[in-house]
């Protein structure tokens, strides 16, 4: 079976799939040239990124099966990589939910994965408002039509999804983030990811998240539970079952 080259793996991660312990599989290849790309060596399909034998990856997943609660497939753009379907089929053999992190530029491949049940959830990274600003953030020409199609499919279909934005101070303003939130109005989850030292502080991000939360069903700050007003009785903590003394 022909599967894409696997460029990297994180055996157990607490950060790539909030709420779950996940294994992360990196497949190379990405059409974008974002100036802030955290893994530029994975961009091309070149050999310089190295390759991990497929069986070694599957073996690792098998050994971690008691810990791992899901597999995250990351790129580049995994949906652009030939043979992704075969890889997803192999991963599905572990009976683990699979999430694909994508820039959302290949809606057909995404829909195919979701329809076949090979992908359980999709996280779309929206780098900037879907205007000229996106092209700047992505470092070149981008088919924004495809990105619009991706958001439309996810917002109107019943599939689980998440939109994400890494907040770099030099690329995005508060208004930009609100503009993205309006584009994905009604989304199930919108996650703002703080970049230590390169974006606004957590307090500022919290404020932005509260404003963006008006457009989506839930807006999280990466690594934090949704905000709650201080001093209120926390939800879920009931009174003593009629046994109180008061």
């Amino acid at each position: 079976m022909r599967t894409p080259a696997i460029r990297g793996i994180i055996e157990t991660s607490l950060t790539h799939w909030p709420g779950r312990i996940a294994a992360v599989v990196f497949v190379g290849g990405c059409p974008l040239h974002c100036p802030h790309c955290p893994a530029p060596h994975l961009r091309g399909a070149s050999e310089e990124a190295g390759e991990i034998p497929r069986d070694a990856v599957l073996d690792t997943l098998y050994r971690r099966r008691r810990w791992v609660e899901g597999v995250v497939v990351k790129g580049g753009e995994p949906f652009a990589v030939p043979g992704l379907r075969e890889l997803l089929e192999l991963l599905k053999d572990f009976s683990l939910p699979v999430r694909v992190d994508t820039p959302g530029l290949h809606p057909e491949a995404m829909v195919d994965g979701l329809r076949r049940g090979l992908v359980d959830t999709v996280a779309v990274e929206i780098k900037a408002p879907l205007t000229e600003a996106y092209r700047k953030a992505a470092g070149g020409d981008v088919d924004l039509g495809a990105l619009f199609a991706t958001t439309e499919i996810l917002l109107s279909g019943g599939w689980d999804h998440e939109f994400r934005t890494a907040v770099y101070g030099d690329l995005l303003t508060e208004e930009d983030i609100l503009s993205i939130a309006r584009t994905i109005r009604g989304a199930r989850r919108y996650v703002l990811r703080s970049v230590p030292g390169r974006g606004p502080g957590r307090a500022a991000l919290r404020r932005i998240a509260r404003r963006a939360g008006r457009y989506v069903r839930a807006c999280h700050l990466d690594g934090l539970a949704p905000e709650r007003e201080a001093g209120t009785v926390p939800c879920g903590l009931g009174r003593d079952g009629g046994a109180g003394r008061g």
Partner: peptide, 13 residues
């Protein structure tokens, strides 16, 4: 700091 997980992930752990 740079790999701060969600509290939910720690709960899963």
């Amino acid at each position: 700091e740079e790999e701060r997980p969600a509290a939910g992930s720690l709960l899963a752990l």
